[in-house]
Nucleic acid binder design. Structure first.
Lengths: 343, 343
DNA sequence: TTGAAAGCGCTACCAA
DNA sequence: TTGGTAGCGCTTTCAA
């Protein structure tokens, strides 16, 4: 009946004031009971917690973020969500951040630079505590926005080139070189690079470059059969492999830009009656679970995605707490399996 | 030199007031130039936009969300990020929501009910416009919080049971029944269900139940070989298949709880010299890209994930705009391939 | 078409 | 250990 509190409100979400009114303390005290419990008398704290429980109180972090100095949001910008490409990174990152009370806000550019610019702007509008973003090559505006924001920015998956702030990733050109070396060591001589190399997928471009460089160093000639029109998938792999071998039947080694492409390549070779690894060797990139279940099992490169996720989380926390920017090269491993087992 | 505006501030992010001061109009006008451009004189609007561009202005949506009625956040709660299980749903959902200016805030429970409760609370603290969450079976507190919040809640992936508000998913028990029917139609008689069935993965439990029911209806006996200790993966599939066949060599049909488990099952059978599909049939669930590249190619069930993502986005937008709650059964398809091609 | 004033729910700072 | 007072940057009336 009294109008001095909103204790009796029915529909709107309870606020700190609702709790304060109910318990008979100030908003301030309730706030401290939440953020610094030891500064509130035990008995009072008990009552406050009870009231919160009864009212199903959920703090309003929009208000908290606005009033406070940090927002507890970490913006995560990826280029793709398919094929587990980054799923494991996001998974590890999210889980590590959660332990520090940080929430992931996700954006997916689908390799579209305009979308990337738009999304980065959108992410920044939430005043995140930090931003983690795939890649080190971005549209100019993205770099400008991110730099101007002055917040910690961790670029993931790739390293090298112009780092905005910090980076945690692998050396993709080195990966490409290692793939080529592996095939050559196993005695394959006419090598081709096959897959989807999107216009804005500079990681794929770097791997392709590493492949070409290493093959050239060995004095051999290399072939590239790629598309920039669609993302990697088995049907694409099958099509490109067929095109490749129709045009150049001498090819005896295929380096695939991704596991899923390699799956289709293997299928194409099987249908053509080409024996893997005897007639032709195949190596891929990604080490998805299925790669070790192919027939023959697929040689591939395993980037340590979990480690990238974990180190990115570490870097974010460090930067938030005033640590210095860092650039970390994460290990990767070439996993030789049956598909390159010629020797 | 004059102190009436913060036009000359250097470090802090520009605000509406910075723009207003610079152009010489009120904060209000700048705000309207953003949200309702036609209510501002063209020339003024031009100046305002120019100032925003120059200062790299990014609106503060925390403030906007607090002051306004909506927050433009959609909380998305999933149980897993591995194996593309939900990647395609998130991808489609995210992209569809973006068109309406809604941003995805992601949380991953890893099938842990305590984590789920914690994460839902955390998501709600951002005062999202809606919540999309995997599954229809939640810890009691989650249902309570979500209901109490009064906001649109779309449960995804599963349907049936107690729907909080709206649901978009598939009938998992029917899927299980169809898998069993498929094997029996192809002449397989001693069937087993194999895979990871986590304690809180009620979708997997429903599929297993559907399998058991259909086999019982046919008057046959069914075997279950599962674990609740770890998530599905090829090594698990291989191990369970070996255990299964060691104990019961008569088994001639295996229903796998997921594609990745089936990959390992196929590998185990290959090593044991069992011919698929002649000696034994295998069917899975998920239709990951790799399934059609196995040897033999894997029969499986294809849930229409993109459609779930799209319909969830539709439901969210409808509910936000005052539409009624809905429950939608999304289609799925049994894809028969070589691994069950006995006949 | 524009501006002034109030306030969203919280935190920060100071005083008690 | 607690409470009062100012905002955070924006949107939302209402007046001009």
């Amino acid at each position: 009946m009294n109008a001095d509190t909103d204790e009796n409100e029915s529909r709107a979400a309870p606020t700190l004031a609702s709790i304060a009114g109910r318990v008979g303390v100030s908003v301030n005290t309730v706030s401290r009971a939440l953020r610094a419990p030891h500064t509130v008398r035990t008995e009072l704290r008990r009552q406050i917690n009870k009231a919160m429980e009864e009212l199903n109180y959920v703090p309003n972090r929009l208000a908290g973020g606005l009033a406070g100095t940090r927002s507890d949001i970490v913006g995560v910008v990826v280029t793709s969500l398919y094929y587990s490409e980054f799923a494991s990174i996001i998974d590890t990152l999210q889980s590590a951040l959660l332990e520090s009370g940080l929430q992931v806000m996700l954006a997916n550019t689908r390799y579209d630079p305009e979308q990337e610019t738009r999304l980065v702007r959108s992410i920044l509008s939430w005043r995140p505590a930090a931003v983690a973003i795939i890649g080190v090559d971005h549209p100019p505006k993205v770099g400008e926005l991110l730099r101007a924001s002055g917040m910690p920015v961790i670029e993931m998956w790739d390293i090298g080139g112009d780092i905005i702030d910090s980076a945690v990733g692998i050396d993709h050109e080195a990966v490409g070189a290692a793939q080529a070396s592996h095939l050559m060591e196993r005695g394959y001589r006419k090598l081709a690079f096959v897959g989807s190399v999107r216009e804005n997928d500079t990681r794929a471009q770097k791997r392709a470059r590493g492949v070409a460089r290493r093959i050239a160093e060995a004095g051999l000639r290399s072939v590239v059969k790629s598309t920039s029109q669609e993302g990697g998938n088995p049907d694409l792999g099958e099509r490109l492999a067929n095109d490749l071998l129709d045009a150049d039947p001498e090819i005896d080694g295929i380096i695939c830009n991704s596991d899923v492409v390699a799956f289709g390549v293997l299928r194409a070779l099987r249908k053509r009656g080409k024996k893997v690894p005897d007639d032709i060797g195949v190596i891929a990139f990604g080490d998805s679970e299925a790669s070790n279940c192919m027939f023959p099992t697929l040689s591939t490169v395993r980037p340590n995605r979990q480690r990238i996720g974990q180190l990115t989380a570490d870097a974010i926390l460090s930067r938030i707490n005033g640590g210095d920017p860092r650039t970390i090269a994460v290990e990767w491993e070439l996993v030789g399996r049956e598909s390159t087992g010629k020797i």
